[in-house]
Simulated scan of single mutants.
Amino acid sequence: MCVSAQGGPVPEEVAEFGIRADDLRYLAALADTGRLVATAEVLGVDHTTVARRVRALEKRLGAQLVRLENDGWELTDAGRAVVGQGRAISDAVKRAIRAVAGVQDDELTGTVRIAAAEGFGTRFVVPALARVQSAHPRLKADLVTGASHLGLRGTNFDLTLVPGPPPRTRLFSERLSEYDAALYASESYLDTYGNPATLDELQAHRFVFFVDAMQRVRELDLESYVPRHTVQFASPNIFALLEATRAGAGICLLPKFMATTTAGLRRIDADLPPQRVPLTLVARPEVLDRPEVRLVREALHREVATRQNELVWK
């Protein structure tokens, strides 16, 4: 017997159409991930099985339930009308598994997938996730960091933390926080080459910065700070830039939350205002009602709210 979104039985006439309850569960899983491969991983099947089962459901219902958009597979109006049935079936399966395993109903399980830039992901997302998992030890978190994972098209992440303002997308987006960045150098570098106090002096120094072709954080704009500059060391990895700066390779535009916690770095004397970078949380609308995603999202907001002094200068 199928279960409705309200917890009751699905009307008997549904069975007359030959609808398989499991096909509704596949539809709910595809709505959550937006990707066939990611859905297959969640369900433990091949991605072709996911596609076949969803198409079979569409054929039985006589309606298109999902369509492929730039941001991945999205529910149609018909899909949104029936996906609640699939979620109810998935929830029933999860409750059965928890009951057999002796897990309390209020203990969260499942997996939350997050993508973030290396620096913010390491310094802020990791501790937020650790606190969530301390309260819910059966909850799994997958954190992937790096600029190559921050593109929003076809994402299979539940939450993506993107430097910059909310993008133009059909996905849900909200401002998570902001952080400041300023020019720093090592004590040894400044002792050797001098601490630049003016823009003219600054332009004579060498710099450490992102590989331009891979730079996604356009708000971190070295060009606007120093119109004439020479980058002697470049990398797509913020920790490589931080280490190169600490080792005396040059001056670098670094986030406050990383530079002020690294020994041996000093902000240069030139009177330049910090660059402020917005940080946006992006998610597929379908995942926001999942309890585990909602809990992680709330934990991220708490993390940045309680650590604002590390992120920005007042």
Rank of each mutant, 00 (worst) to 15 (best):
residue 171 L to C: 09
residue 224 S to C: 03
residue 64 Q to E: 14
residue 85 Q to P: 07
residue 212 D to E: 14
residue 25 R to A: 15
residue 160 T to P: 03
residue 153 R to M: 11
residue 104 Q to C: 10
residue 90 S to K: 01
residue 106 D to F: 11
residue 180 D to E: 10
residue 296 V to T: 09
residue 219 E to P: 06
residue 8 G to L: 11
residue 275 Q to W: 08
residue 119 G to N: 06
residue 220 L to M: 12
residue 190 L to F: 07
residue 35 R to P: 01
residue 20 R to W: 06
residue 61 L to Y: 01
residue 309 N to P: 10
residue 154 G to Y: 13
residue 312 V to F: 03
residue 44 G to A: 00
residue 266 R to Y: 03
residue 285 P to G: 02
residue 201 E to L: 12
residue 238 I to R: 05
residue 245 T to C: 06
residue 191 D to C: 05
residue 190 L to G: 06
residue 73 W to P: 03
residue 152 L to R: 07
residue 96 A to G: 15
residue 154 G to R: 09
residue 5 A to N: 08
residue 172 F to D: 12
residue 32 D to T: 09
residue 25 R to E: 13
residue 135 A to F: 04
residue 89 I to V: 10
residue 141 A to S: 15
residue 282 V to R: 03
residue 217 V to A: 07
residue 149 H to Q: 04
residue 186 S to K: 07
residue 35 R to W: 13
residue 297 R to D: 02
residue 291 P to T: 04
residue 4 S to H: 09
residue 250 G to S: 01
residue 66 V to A: 11
residue 287 V to M: 02
residue 205 H to F: 03
residue 37 V to E: 11
residue 1 M to W: 09
residue 68 L to Y: 15
residue 209 F to A: 07
residue 103 V to H: 01
residue 44 G to T: 02
residue 238 I to G: 05
residue 163 P to Y: 00
